[in-house]
């Protein structure tokens, strides 16, 4: 039986760019170049490693996003994923995470999966809750925030490093996992991989295809509302001195003045 692995990825504004909000208080996706969320590269990497270890697996990469989000799919395909699914519909614009999870879950059901792999969080919204919401909606176990992951037969196993303890966890497939940036460096696409990706299939789906009512998603369907967005004022320029032998003492004097020592 072929192991069906689905990787959920997000196309995000480059975190090193000048990220801003659009007039409707959604993330501005025009002003800054987008790319495959760095943290999702770890998800793609682990999916590929699990597929390679299994010997009989198919990796499908899935995204929800505007036209340009295809770039994120292409990157994942050039890393080695077999095919891609792009959910794209103007009515999705402004969806909150609850609605997004409904869309992704429907798409996953349509694609079919034994294992869903996600990154630990997006680099724009940074909520880190989509994998848990997918598990809830799909009615399967979540084994999330894993720093190590592997599949043995029909069991997924991994290590979850929490604040208080490091836990070994396991779940029966089908299941949802998310992997951290400690799970292993993501591979760079090879030239061959980039060329091969151009021929790999990308299926497009819209809300009708998924049987989702447009009113249930988007800005109007969101269960949260952004009231105001305010740019943080730049920090006022501080004092900078060059150490000429007394730097530590000067710093101590500053900290004493501020009552820290």
């Amino acid at each position: 039986m072929t192991l069906r692995i689905a990787v959920c990825v997000k196309y995000v504004p480059d975190a090193t760019g000048d990220r801003r909000f659009a007039d409707d208080t959604t993330t501005d996706r025009e002003g800054v170049d987008g790319l495959l969320s760095e943290l999702d590269e770890y998800g793609v990497e682990q999916a590929l490693r699990i597929a390679e270890a299994s010997g009989d697996a198919e990796v499908t990469v899935l995204t929800v996003g505007p036209d340009d989000a295809k770039d994120a799919l292409r990157k994942a395909l050039s890393m080695g994923a077999d095919k891609a699914v792009h959910v794209n519909d103007d009515d999705i614009h402004g969806s909150d995470v609850i609605a997004t999870s409904a869309i992704v879950a429907k798409a996953l059901e349509q694609v079919g999966f034994d294992l869903v792999v996600c990154g630990m969080a997006s680099t724009d919204g940074t909520m880190g809750v989509l994998p848990a919401l997918l598990a809830e909606r799909l009615g399967v176990p979540q084994a999330t925030l894993l720093s190590e992951v592997g599949v043995e037969g029909t069991t997924v196993k991994g290590r979850r490093d929490g604040d208080a303890a490091s836990e070994q966890v396991e779940a029966q497939l089908p299941a949802v996992v998310s992997v951290t940036d400690q799970s292993g460096e993501a591979r760079y696409p090879s030239f061959k991989g980039i060329m091969a990706a151009k021929k790999k299939p990308v299926q497009s789906l819209d809300l009708d295809d998924l049987g989702i009512d447009a009113d249930a998603v988007g800005l109007a369907g969101a269960w949260t509302k952004v009231e105001t967005v305010t740019a943080r004022p730049p920090r006022s320029k501080g004092t900078i001195v060059t150490d000429e032998g007394e730097g530590g003492k000067q710093l101590a004097a500053f900290l004493a003045e501020q009552k820290f020592i």
Binding site: I240, V241, D243, G247, A252
Partner: peptide, 18 residues
């Protein structure tokens, strides 16, 4: 708010002592 351009291996121990 306050920055020292210098070697942390000399600045930090001096601050620690203070």
């Amino acid at each position: 708010d306050y920055g020292i351009v210098g070697d942390l291996f000399t600045v930090l121990p001096q601050l620690t002592a203070q």
